[in-house]
C-alpha cells in the first residue's frame, strides 16, 4: 500500500510543524504522570454488528519524560461478508499489543502523540465455499485451522483531549499496521486476523477511538 507512506510522512511533518508552533506558547505544560486505563469504545459498537464482535482495553504508564509505555489486549470475532463471493469465513481469537507512545502536548488539555507497537495474535479460523454446477450436485467444502499465530508492528499517531473532569480523556489514533509473520494456507488463505484486520495487504491502516481514565 504505497500511498500510505506519503501519508505517514505528511502526518509526521504536520506533527513536527505543530510542535514547533506549540513551543512558542508561553503556557507552562504539565505532564500528568501515573497509571492510565482505557477502553476502545469504537469496538463496543461492533457488539451490535452481525459481521464482527470486538472488545479491546489497555493500560499505560505516563512518565515525566513524555514517554508512555502501554499494553492493550483484545478479543475479536470477525465474519467479513466480503471474504468470499461464494462462501463464508470466520476468524476468532485474542491479541495483545505492547509499545510506547511519545507525547507532544500542545496545552494542558490537548495532546498529540506518536508511538510504535509490537502486536501478537492467537486465533483460529473456519469457513466454507460452494461451487455450483448446472448438471452436478453443488460442491461444498468446509475448512478450519486451529492454533494460528501472527505478529506485526504498528506505527501510531493520534490526539487526546481531557474532559471537564480531568481524570477522564477521549482520544483517537491513526495506526499503520505492518505484518511481520503469519501462518499462510493454500488454496484458501487466512482472510482476517483479530487485532490486525484483513490480510490482503502487507500493511493495513486502522483508526481507534478510546475513553481513558487516569488514576
Amino acid at each position: 500500500m504505497k500511498p500510505l507512506l506519503p501519508l505517514v510522512f505528511s502526518l509526521l511533518f504536520t506533527l513536527i510543524f505543530l510542535k514547533g508552533n506549540a513551543q512558542e506558547d508561553s503556557t507552562k505544560l504539565v505532564i500528568d504522570t501515573g497509571l492510565e486505563v482505557y477502553l476502545d469504545y469504537g469496538k463496543l459498537i461492533t457488539q451490535f454488528s452481525e459481521f464482527e464482535s470486538k472488545l479491546e482495553a489497555g493500560i499505560a504508564i505516563q512518565l515525566s519524560n513524555k514517554l508512555a509505555p502501554n499494553f492493550q489486549a483484545g478479543y475479536a470475532t470477525l465474519e467479513p461478508a466480503t471474504a468470499f463471493e461464494n462462501g463464508t469465513y470466520k476468524s476468532t481469537g485474542y491479541y495483545g499489543r505492547i509499545g510506547v507512545n511519545y507525547l507532544i502536548p500542545f496545552d494542558n488539555t490537548n495532546t498529540f502523540f506518536v508511538g510504535i507497537k509490537y502486536a501478537l495474535a492467537f486465533y483460529e479460523d473456519e469457513g466454507m465455499y460452494e461451487i455450483s454446477s448446472d448438471i452436478f450436485d453443488t460442491y461444498s467444502v468446509s475448512f478450519s485451522e486451529k492454533d494460528l499465530e501472527a505478529n506485526w508492528f504498528e506505527l501510531v499517531m493520534g490526539s487526546e483531549k481531557k474532559l471537564k473532569n480531568e481524570k477522564w480523556a477521549v482520544g483517537g489514533q491513526f495506526t499503520l499496521r505492518v505484518m511481520n509473520q503469519r501462518d499462510k494456507f493454500s488454496p484458501v488463505d487466512t482472510y482476517a486476523i483479530p487485532g490486525y484486520g484483513r490480510t490482503l495487504d502487507q500493511t493495513v491502516p486502522a483508526v481507534n477511538v478510546y475513553l481513558k481514565y487516569k488514576f
Binding site: T14, L15, L18, N21, A22, D25, F106, D107, N110, F112, S159
Partner: peptide, 9 residues
C-alpha cells in the same frame, strides 16, 4: 492559535 491548529490537524 494552538487550539485552532489542533482542530486543523
Amino acid at each position: 492559535p494552538v487550539i485552532k491548529m489542533s482542530l486543523k490537524f
